[in-house]
């Protein structure tokens, strides 16, 4: 029982980890919490669904198109709304993202309706592998785990070794100075939003395939992703992923041993607890300014 709870916890945690990654990418460059993250991802999942069911395209084609859409959507929202903010402060920008969230939600409900749809996916949740003992893991869970880890490694390499990745970090630390280096801050922001949106869309595809697709799809995962990001320290990619896994496991153990009904509360209890005990998060390597 314990082994199984932990295994499925890790599997669920992988989707939280992806959502947390998406949030952390934007937070890292602009210190803005993007509350539209979930609904951007939901909309991308709907685009994938439309390609698959309405136009009957193949999986590879549909997902590629939907990811391209996700990138364009993220970049567009940054360009069209956040950049227009006059003398923005962080709180104002966060409120803008809340507004975007509602807009996207409305858009999806209007276009596709709020009834639940079956999201076709090439990997099944019902083919399971034995992991020794009576612990099983489904194919879908394995894919989710793989995608989360692959994206994390990709992003880590991107931020550490590429010029654009380093420029993103530089932009977050000191926008003025970044401009003075000739870094086009606007483009960097667009790119950030695009990337984050793609990561979120990956999460949405995986979540939609276990669940059904409707405009409320990403509401809970987004909040879980948010608490995972807080748990990991908001700025650390590795922290976000580990935070996602920890949250998934803790939640599952709570559901298994204490109460399934109150399972949803765990994520929020975690936020409160972390903010009380260690507000900088478990894994954040926060640079300490010398006085």
């Amino acid at each position: 029982m314990l082994g199984q709870l932990i295994t499925s916890g890790i599997a669920i945690g992988a989707t939280y980890a992806l959502m947390a990654l998406a949030m952390v990418i934007i937070y890292k460059t602009s210190e803005v919490l993007n509350f539209a993250q979930g609904d951007m991802a939901m909309l991308s999942a709907f685009v994938a669904y439309m390609c698959l069911s309405t136009y009957g395209l193949g999986f590879a084609m549909s997902f590629t198109l939907a990811l391209a859409f996700a990138f364009a959507l993220g970049a567009f929202l940054e360009f069209a709304f956040l950049r227009r903010a006059k003398e923005p402060n962080v709180l104002g920008l966060i409120i803008i993202t809340l507004g975007l969230e509602m807009m996207l939600y409305g858009l999806a409900s209007w276009r596709w309706g709020s009834d639940q749809k079956d999201f076709p996916f090439p990997v099944s949740d019902f083919d399971v592998y034995q992991l020794g003992g009576d612990v099983v893991i489904s194919q879908l869970n394995l894919v989710t785990l793989g995608v989360a880890c692959a994206l994390m490694i990709l992003l880590f390499v991107f931020f550490r070794y590429t010029k654009v990745g380093v420029a993103m970090k530089a932009t977050q630390q000191n926008q003025q100075a970044a401009r003075l280096m000739g870094i086009r801050v606007g483009r960097i922001m667009m790119l950030t939003w695009g990337m984050s949106s793609v990561v979120g869309a990956c999460a949405a595809f995986l979540i939609a395939s276990t669940d059904t697709l409707d405009p409320n799809l990403m509401w809970t995962p987004q909040l879980k992703g948010f608490s995972a990001a807080v748990l990991g320290g908001m700025t650390s990619l590795v922290g976000a992923v580990l935070g996602g896994f920890i949250l998934g496991v803790v939640e599952n153990l709570f559901g298994g041993y204490v109460s399934v009904e109150f399972k949803a509360v765990v994520a929020f209890a975690v936020i409160v607890l972390i903010l009380c005990v260690k507000p900088s998060g478990l894994f954040a390597k926060h640079y300490v300014r010398k006085v």
Partner: peptide, 14 residues
Amino acid sequence: EVFEELTVLENLQM
């Protein structure tokens, strides 16, 4: 106004 959380080398690369 150096980028405090980047390494010296990364600063120069920027």
